[in-house]
Design a protein around this nucleic acid. Sequence first.
DNA 1: TAGGCCATCTGGTCCT
DNA 2: AGGACCAGATGGCCTA
Length: 181
Amino acid sequence: MDSDASLVSSRPSSPEPDDLFLSARNKGSSGGFSGGTVSSSTQSDSPPELSAELRSAMSAAGVVVVDKLGFKSSSSSSSSSSSSSSKKDKKQMTEPELQQLRLKINSRERKRMHDLNIAMDGLREVMPYAHGPSVRKLSKIATLLLARNYILMLTNSLEEMKRLWLKPGVRRTRHIYFQKY
DNA sequence: TAGGCCATCTGGTCCT
DNA sequence: AGGACCAGATGGCCTA
């Protein structure tokens, strides 16, 4: 049932998620990512539906959350028009009213998924993976798996640095970075 | 042509 | 009550 709809979607496929992180590390590839629709309007506040814990984590990481209200979509117009019909009981609603409500709900869901995709694009941008027009965009599952492995690697690296830094007998000067070992 | 990936629709549930 | 979130279903597009 494709009642409303038909938004154009450029949808490049993606590579295998297997060994994504390892291959990225081994190649040491990086580059300027040109594609991806990043949020057109941003704000410093996080959306209200995010948990406080997640919000603080995101702000600590300097994450800019996409402005939900600022996102331009076809649904914005419908939200104001259907208030009268949606107040009625669904059983009492006429067929056109029900259809109108359905369109409104569909539009909201579409916008929600678009916001999710924008966030996914933002995640792709910071992943250690070759970006570019000639490179396939990471799939959603590959992006999430790669992000997880990347975080784990960074965590391990940080722990290792702490361990070396606190090691007894090691001079803690800036020259330590240039010592041969 | 099969399989992967994706967008969209839809009904149910949870939350504010 | 309305909106957000979620998961299942469906169909389209692309690639091997």
